[in-house]
């Protein structure tokens, strides 16, 4: 009797948990799902609000990649900008994080504080002066006018996360390699560098995603399609013709922009979560 009651309660608990899981999944995925569904609807049915397209078609994707559309250019620009930001931030961020995690020097806390303070300013506070500065240098509408501010935005968090990773590494191994006769640079390259790959890779994913998603700086710095990244291109999409409802086209473009990120997230969710939480919580 009491066993049955216990089982019923446990079964009820499991069902409740499943239901709760379902709610979380719907909350997180339904809007993205709606974007995919809308992107597959032909323009005439775009507002029929059916949960599945009645006549699925790829006409929106054809419009996104068709002639007269600059979206392929925008994808290329986003890729160039985000990849450059990631490479530059990782190279100089690894230098900085190594110094902060491994070297004892005066002013270490000051430098840490500096990195933290630099992450607190709102982007809009720097927008107009940077625009002025880059205008003086003739840099408006160039890749570097977006790459360098993005590096500045990603460095504080990147250095912070890398420093936590580096501080937790088994540095005894480096010392052991040194006693076995390796030079400092050999010990670093053959022992420490391979071990730090996961941490560096995790940070690189975070930096890449934030650069790929940047909108505010790109929106002021880029003025023609040949340097405009996808975020700006989508916000400015007008559809195939100017009388067209750009809903479907924008959704198709949104899916194209988001799918690489969703794949990154699915492949590397553990790494991404450890990176996101390394800055905030000490596990």
């Amino acid at each position: 009797m009491s066993t049955t009651a216990h089982e019923v309660r446990r079964w009820g608990g499991t069902a409740g948990l499943l239901l709760a899981n379902g709610l979380v999944l719907v909350f997180c995925l339904a809007p993205f799902g709606w974007m995919v569904v809308s992107s597959l609807k032909p323009p005439a049915e775009i507002f029929d609000n059916r949960l599945l397209p009645a006549n699925p078609s790829l006409v929106n994707y054809a419009a996104v990649f068709g002639s007269g559309s600059d979206f392929t250019l925008a994808l290329r620009n986003s890729l160039v900008i985000s990849a450059s930001v990631t490479v530059i931030s990782m190279v100089i961020g690894v230098f900085a994080a190594y110094a902060l995690a491994r070297l004892k020097f005066r002013g270490r806390n000051l430098v840490l504080g500096f990195f933290l303070a630099m992450s607190m300013f709102p982007g809009v506070a720097i927008l107009s002066p940077v625009f002025q500065l880059f205008a003086d240098w003739g840099w408006i509408n160039t890749y570097q006018s977006m790459i360098i501010p993005d590096v500045g935005f990603s460095l504080p968090l990147g250095v912070w996360v890398l420093t936590t990773f580096f501080a937790a590494m088994p540095w005894e191994l480096e010392a052991a390699a040194r006693t076995d006769g390796a030079t400092p640079s050999q010990a670093f390259r053959h022992v420490i560098l391979p071990l730090s790959v996961p941490g560096v890779f995790t940070t690189a994913i975070l930096v890449f995603i934030s650069a790929w998603n940047e909108f505010m700086v790109a929106n002021s710095m880029s003025q023609t399609p040949d340097v405009q990244p996808v975020t700006v291109a989508i916000a400015k999409f007008t559809g195939v013709s100017q009388f067209d409802q750009p809903f479907g086209t924008q959704m198709a473009a949104g899916v194209v922009v988001t799918v690489p990120l969703v794949i990154l997230v699915l492949l590397f969710q553990r790494r991404i979560i450890s990176g996101l939480t390394a800055g905030g919580v000490k596990g």
């Binding site: 997180c28 995925l29 996808v230 975020t231 922009v257 988001t258």
Partner: peptide, 11 residues
């Protein structure tokens, strides 16, 4: 849970 976070805010 990471999907909403990864979608660009502009999108």
């Amino acid at each position: 849970v990471l999907v909403p976070w990864a979608i660009p805010t502009a999108v």
